[in-house]
Design a protein around this nucleic acid. Sequence first.
RNA 1: GCCGGCAUAGCUCAGUUGGCUAGAGCAGCUGAUUUGUAAUCAGCAGGCCCGGGGUUCAAAUCCUCGUGCCGGCACCA
Length: 602
Amino acid sequence: MNAIAIKHNNEIIDLQTAKEKGFEGEPILLDNSKESLEVLRHSTAHLMAQAIKSLYPDAKFFVGPTVKEGFYYDFKTEAEIGESDLKSIEKQMLSFAKKKYEIEKYEISMDEAKEKFKDDHLKLAVIERIPDDMVSIYKQGEFEDLCRGPHLPNIGLIRFFKLTKISGAYLGGDSKNEMLTRIYGIAFADKESLKAHMDMLAEAEKRDHRKVGAEMKLFTFREEVGAGFPIWLPAGGRLRARLESLLFKAHRKRGYEPVRGPEMLRSDLWKTSGHYQNYGENMYFTKIDEIEFGVKPMNCVGHIKVYEDELHSYRDLPIKYFEYGVVHRHEFTGALHGLFRVREFTQDDAHIFCTSDQIEEQIIEVVDFVDKIMSTFEFDYKMMISTKPEKAVGSDEVWETSIKALKSAMDKNELPYEIDEGGGAFYGPKIDIKITDAIGREWQCGTIQLDFNLPERFELEYNGENNDKIQPVMIHRAILGSFERFIGILTEHYAGEFPMFIAPTQVAIVPIADTHNAYAKELADKLIDINADSEIYNKNDSLNKRIRTAEKTRVPMLVIIGDEEVEGRTVAIRDRRTREQYNLSEDEFLKLIQTKINEVNF
RNA sequence: GCCGGCAUAGCUCAGUUGGCUAGAGCAGCUGAUUUGUAAUCAGCAGGCCCGGGGUUCAAAUCCUCGUGCCGGCACCA
């Protein structure tokens, strides 16, 4: 196999550039290594551009980089391109690839480039972003494009690719700019890898919580109810209740007090907190007797009012309030997405009021709490510290101090983290918890946010040792983030096959004939006593049909009862996953369920 | 909010260039059957074809304005 590029000074250099500059280095072969795919996908993006240009001659191109999941190219054309056009573009790409054009490279000066692309405002926009004196042009057949490279030596090497998505994208990622057309694609070195990737996408689609949620009757949405307002169905209600009660206990164990703030508060309070000015466009407002109220988008203000209800001594701190807080946020319609993005959701929210000396230990405790929960659900996760965003309240100094506190808490415990510059909330820096699900996708859930601002704005205080008034520090934190999103993620993570302790229904009972219904009912009652939900499948259907129906509900355990079982007070268990069957006595069975339900404690 | 697409029974989908009373499978209901581990048989019922307006002799089908959904962008738990 010939090299497609080389690695020189730890940089990928294409053969065109290597020849021109006389560079040497380790060869990069056409395989599925990171470097190889980088080059391959970048060239595939160019091949796509070439195909688009030939099909839509007026097309002008912006940038076409590789991304984590393949590549894309942003471009503009007067023609309306839809999903159905991807096939014809792919076809055109293949026919160009067959021509095995060399990919040639040449360099021109900045001025020459500006002249060359003077009628192409998109390329000029690209050129403006390049600080260099010289720019390179890559050419394949008739098509040429301004590009930094690196590229394959020949487009004939591109064989296994697929265009996956088409959408709009703002020029330069700024919503103030015009919108371009973006086409996403993926490419691999071999057919099998492409297929594996497409299979993975199909698997993700199968697990989609919107689909599984509907099948399992966890939740639904209705047009007449409104976009972004989920409706929890009985099965989803049971699942959610289990999660809530487990988490309730876990909070109590860690010294959190349950509290509850009102759903709406007077706008004056939101002005004091800064939400009115900084978050107002995401809030819902209404008037009651000429007084304006804002529906809470966050729970902090309510908890502050709880704190203010009495005087606090330094001896009381830290004080931890928690609430399953229902919040409403006006999200853009286009942002709504199943349970992942809704307009009403419930946070597992808590606020810790503490002294600045306690910040570190409190952060560490919360991080430990997070770890307990995420590892229980078998999630890998990573932490990300977010710093000051453009739109923020509070001085730089306050921001710096708080970021330092977060970092030092992480450092002292040797916890790895990444930095997201400018990603903080408007009122303070934060640690976000990103979890990776069973098929490798990342989701942002929990968040730990330091806030030196609200205590200041609400003039919170506690009595110090010398009876002096000291301002407490406030830590906002949510671990699941929201029940909606977390349950959505859990659904995809487990593909709906929830473990016993969280499943909407623990056991499906299938009596063989009507004469076994009484025993079935008896078992169901005993299961309720040990906090397990069950469902009896005694409809007028064949036994096989009822087993099939029960299996399809993804319930973790199926028990079949007939004459033998009634007689000996036993159950015939069928494990849905392994399709194994075994028998247990009634007592053993109940004990097993009880163990499986109680084995989890956060 | 922006770009593109989509909307027919509870669900998954047919419905030809505008043309008879809009169809099927699953689910539901009724009856027969009472079953030992993944679909028993028969019958019945179920539709403002997303909503408003328009074009036409005639609209599920064409146009238009909404609403909702899907894929991204931007924004975010």
